[in-house]
Simulated scan of single mutants.
Amino acid sequence: MVELRERPRTGWAAVAPVAAASFTLVLSEFIAVAVLPSLAADLHVSEGDAGLAVVLPGLVAAVAAPAAVLAANRTDRRLVLLALTGLLAVSNLLAGLAPSFTMLLVARALLGVAVGAFWTIGVAVAPRLVPAGRGTAATALVTAGISAATVVSLPAGHLVAQTWGWRWALLIVGALAVLITIWQVLALPSMRPDRALGWSALTSLFRSRRDRTGLLLGALLFFAHFGAYTFITPFLTDRSAFSSGSVTLLLLGFGVAGLAGNFGAGAAVTRNLPLTLAAAAVLLGGSVALLTAVTSLPALTVVLVLVWGASWGAVPLIVQTYMMGGTAAEGGLALFVSTTQLFLAAGSALGGQVVDRWGLSPDYLLFAIPAVAAAVVARLFLKTT
């Protein structure tokens, strides 16, 4: 048996395969959206039922995040990341080869385990791989995978599905995960866990005012964003009268702006985290609310969508950085992942009800409110927690 020893920091060459895993993880989540119609037709289920393939990973991730911290309590973080990236590969390959919808859901549940555990442990190890003082930049590189995958997942998945079929879209992502696993084997050092974390220690974080504030901010912002973003395509096509091709380009712009916002926040958050988060929350809520007033002005609509993308791209990095500053970084991130995944689902579900009953504009106005509330919380409480 090979003995695992703590090796020195290896710098950005070790951060890169973790960031690549982040990209592939989000790509795996969103590519199902791109192939949903052909997947449903091939497996003989309705598109509504097929939507479980999109929702299920998030629900499983909410449970997997704290469970991963407890299960991998004393395990070398290098081995944990290798196992998670390997699980990511297995889930995509199984989904691509699934003979039935039930097997596909099993594969997507495995993806949910990888999602929850990775956003808890993968993000937390990034600062350990670079010189002191560069931790936020390393975290920004890992979280940039969210925006980058958002940019390419829908168009790439659609292109592959149209050319070779939906199964190949998932199989290609699975093959990419295999390559990244090999890359991690070569690049990652051994990393012993910073501290053992039991169930009592994990639940004790709820007694910390600092951690409660971070969880509240994550809940408000994810609830606000996904309550509106889930319906961005019908909003742009029905309310703003953009063509299908224009919407595709605008969504690409949203993702690129999110990437810029992620790295911009990485530079600003070390100077003033409360102000950076408050600014991002105000821009998110303001852009969502103002979109309802400029539907007849395409240029302003484009500007507001890009502002929304940039502000949202900053949010996960800022709140995760804040949660990692507590007494138990991985524990705080575990609760953050669980909270945000649940409020992501709640926002989408409630948003659907609002849209069905009152329309798109009331939905956008309603979900701008929790974003503005998050800005108030950030300015009033972060400095004193």
Rank of each mutant, 00 (worst) to 15 (best):
V123Y: 04
V123N: 01
A65Q: 11
P99F: 09
V106D: 12
V113A: 12
R77A: 02
P99A: 01
L79A: 10
V123F: 03
A67N: 13
A109C: 07
V55L: 09
L88I: 10
G96H: 04
N73Q: 11
V69E: 07
A61D: 11
S91F: 14
A89G: 13
L79H: 10
A107S: 12
A117D: 03
R128E: 14
T102L: 13
R108T: 14
L84M: 08
L82K: 10
L56I: 13
A117Q: 02
S100G: 08
A83W: 03
V63I: 15
W119I: 11
G116P: 08
A124S: 15
A109M: 08
I121L: 15
A98L: 01
V80I: 10
A89P: 01
N73E: 14
R128A: 14
A62M: 13
R78S: 14
S91Y: 14
A117L: 07
A107R: 11
A98K: 01
L110S: 11
V60M: 09
A107Y: 13
V123P: 12
L105R: 09
L93N: 04
V115E: 12
L70G: 00
G96M: 08
G112R: 04
L84C: 03
V106I: 15
A95Q: 03
L81A: 03
V80G: 02
R108L: 05
S91D: 14
S100W: 08
G96C: 07
P99Y: 09
L59G: 15
L93V: 11
R74S: 06
V80Q: 05
V106S: 07
A89T: 05
A89V: 00
L87W: 00
V54L: 13
L94E: 11
A107W: 14
V90I: 12
L105E: 08
V115I: 15
L97Q: 03
G116S: 01
P131Y: 00
P127H: 03
A83I: 10
N92Y: 02
R78Y: 15
A89K: 00
V69Q: 07
L94D: 06
L59P: 06
F118S: 03
A124K: 11
V80E: 08
L111V: 09
V125G: 13
V90N: 02
A67L: 15
N92G: 04
V69P: 03
A61N: 12
A72R: 01
P127Q: 05
G116K: 06
L81G: 02
L111Y: 08
A83S: 15
P99M: 08
A95N: 01
A83C: 12
L104W: 12
R74L: 02
A83F: 05
R108A: 10
L93A: 07
G112L: 06
P99G: 02
G116N: 04
L79I: 07
L111D: 05
V80H: 07
I121Q: 07
G86Y: 06
W119C: 09
V80F: 03
V130G: 00
R74F: 00
R128D: 15
G86V: 02
V115M: 15
A98Y: 04
V63Y: 13
L87G: 15
P66N: 13
V123H: 00
T102P: 00
